[in-house]
Design a protein around this nucleic acid. Sequence first.
DNA 1: CTGAAAGCGCTTACAG
DNA 2: CTGAAAGCGCTTACAG
Lengths: 346, 346
Amino acid sequence: MPKRESQKPGAVTILDVAKHAGVSPMTASRVINGNPRVGQDLRERVQASVQTLRYRPNLAGRSLRTTGSARIGVLYSNPSAAYLNELMLGILEQSSLSGAQVLVEKCGGIASQRAATQRLLEAGVDGIILPPPLCDSPQTLRELDERGIPVVAVAGAPVAGVSSVRIDDYQGSRAMTLYLLELGHTRIGFIQGDPSHTSAQLRRQAFLDTLAESGLRMPEEYMVVGMFTYRSGLTAARQLLDLERRPTAIFCSNDDMAAAAMAVAHGAGVRIPDALTVVGFDDTPVATTLWPELTTIRQPVTALGKNAVALMLEEIRARRSGRRREATHQVMKHTLIKRQSSAAAS
Amino acid sequence: MPKRESQKPGAVTILDVAKHAGVSPMTASRVINGNPRVGQDLRERVQASVQTLRYRPNLAGRSLRTTGSARIGVLYSNPSAAYLNELMLGILEQSSLSGAQVLVEKCGGIASQRAATQRLLEAGVDGIILPPPLCDSPQTLRELDERGIPVVAVAGAPVAGVSSVRIDDYQGSRAMTLYLLELGHTRIGFIQGDPSHTSAQLRRQAFLDTLAESGLRMPEEYMVVGMFTYRSGLTAARQLLDLERRPTAIFCSNDDMAAAAMAVAHGAGVRIPDALTVVGFDDTPVATTLWPELTTIRQPVTALGKNAVALMLEEIRARRSGRRREATHQVMKHTLIKRQSSAAAS
DNA sequence: CTGAAAGCGCTTACAG
DNA sequence: CTGAAAGCGCTTACAG
C-alpha cells in the first residue's frame, strides 16, 4: 500500500483527474493543455473533473518536461527603481509560472557590462532580457548577438533580429497631447526625457507633430530638456514657471519629472489643476502617491515583463529543437489615465 | 544511443557532476546541499567538479521532490504600491528559487476579505502570507487560524502562534532620533503614521522615549498625526511649518510623507537641508527619486518577502510530515541611510 | 559515510 | 483520437 499519510490531502494531481474522468493521464494532459485532438465527450469529462477536483497543474512537474531547465538572465544598468521593480515583478511572475529560473545582474559602464554578461553566461543562462536603457545600446545588442545569445529587449527602438516588447510611445504621447488640446490648453510646456533614450525622442516627436496637426506651435522656451530624473525635473519646471508668459499645462515625459514639476508649482504658489495642469507618462507608483494624483499614460510594465519572458521561452524552445524563429516585435496597449492633476484651461 | 542532439549543450545536471567527481548522484546531492555526513575527500572532489562544470541545480527538479507542490497565497489590502511591489519581488524571487507557486488576492473590507481567502483556499494554497496592514488585524489572523491555515505575517506586532517576519520599528526609530540629536537638532517635529498600524505606534513611541532619555520634550504641536499617505503628509507638514517657532528637523514616519514634507518646505521657500532637515522611514524607491535624496531608515523589504516565503515553506513541510512547529518570529536588520536631506542644526 | 532504487507530477515520443 | 512507457533532474527513504 502506498504511503498516503504524509501526503497533503488537497494535492490533486493529473492522475486524480484522469482517474476521476476515467481516462488516461495523457488524455487529461491534452485537454488541460488545450490540445484539440481529443474527442468531444472525453474532453468534457476531463473538464468536469478538473472543475470538481479543483485541479491546478503543478508547474515544477510540467516545466521539468517542457522548458527543461530554462534560465533567463536580466541585465540592467542605471534604471528607475520604480520601473525596474514593476518590470521584475512581471518577469518573476511569468517565469515562476513557466518554471524558469531568473538571474539578475546589474552593470555600470561598458566594461562592467561585459563582466556581468560573462557572469550570466557562466551561470548557464539561455537568454538575456534587456530593460531600458540597455535595450537602446546597439553595442550591447551586437555583442550579445555575436555570441549567439537570444535577447529580448524591453522598450527601445525595434532592432532587426532582436525580439522586443514595448508600448507605442509615439501614440501614447499623441493621446496625451490630444487630451491636453481637448481641455483647451494652448500654452503647453514640454519636459523631455533623456535624449539618448528612444522613448524620450518618440514622446517629444509625437507632441510636436500632434500640435503641428492642430496648427499650433509652442515658443521654443516651452520645450525643455530633462533627464527623466526628479532632479532634472525640478530645474526644467523652474525654467517653465519662471517664464513671463508661462504655460497653462506641462507635459512631462515621465512621472518622476511630473512629481518634480508639481513640487515646483506648489513652491511657486501655483495651484494644480486650477492654475496649472501637470501630466506625466508611465503610471509608476509615484503617480498615485502624489496629491493631486497624476494624470498620466499607463504603461503595462508588469505585463511587458511577463511577455518578455514568454517570448524568451519560445525562443529558447525553438533553438533547442533546432528551429529558428523570426524576431518578434510585440506592441502592448497603453492607456490614458485621467486623474486630478489635469483640468480645463482657465 | 540516447538522443543528445536536441539537448542544450550547457545543461549540466547533477549526474554530470557525480560522474566527473566519480561518486554517486546521492553523494553529489549531499555535498551540494551542505549535508555534513560526507567524507572530506569526496566532498572536496564534488565541490571541485561543481566549480569546473559550473553546475547550477535545476530548481524544478529539486522542488518536485522536496516541497512537492507548495502553493502560497498572498492576501493584501490597501497597500502602499511601492512597498507591496518590493515585497512581492522578494516573495516571487524566493518562491521561484524554491519552486513554490504564488497566488495573489487583493481585498477591501472584511466581506471581500473572506471571499478572497475562500478563493485562495479553493485554489489549493497551503498557507497565506499577510503583508501590512492585514497583519495587524486580529480578526483576520483568528479566522485563518481557526481554519487551520498556516500564516506568516509581514511586519505587525508579534502574535502568539503566528509566525512573523519584521524589522524592529522601535529600534529603527530610536536610531533615527539619536542621529537627529547628534546633528544638534533640539526642535524636532514628528509626523506619525496611521495610528492603527503597529509600526506607526512603535516609531512614535521610540521617538518620544529617546527624547525623554536625553532630557528633551517637544511641545505638543510638534507631534502631528498623518496616515502614511503623501496627502496626509502635505497637511501635516504645513501644520509644522506654519508654527511660529518651527522645528529645524522633521522626522516623518515613512518616505511618502517625507516626500510631501519636502514639497511643502520647498513651497514655503525653506531650503533643505540648510534650513530644515527632513528624514523618512522605509527607504522605498521614492527616497532616491527626490532631490535632495532622503535620509531614511532602510527596511530590507525584499528580504522580508524572501524570508516570509522560506518560513512558510518550512511550516508547510513540517505539517506535511505530521510535525508541529512553534511559531517563529524573525527580526531583520534595519539600517540608517544618510543622504542629503539631513544636516547639522544651524 | 556511501549508494541503488524509486518516485515527485508532468509531458514527449512512440505505438496503435 | 487514445494510451502505455519512459524520462525530465532531483532527493527521500532504505540498505549497507
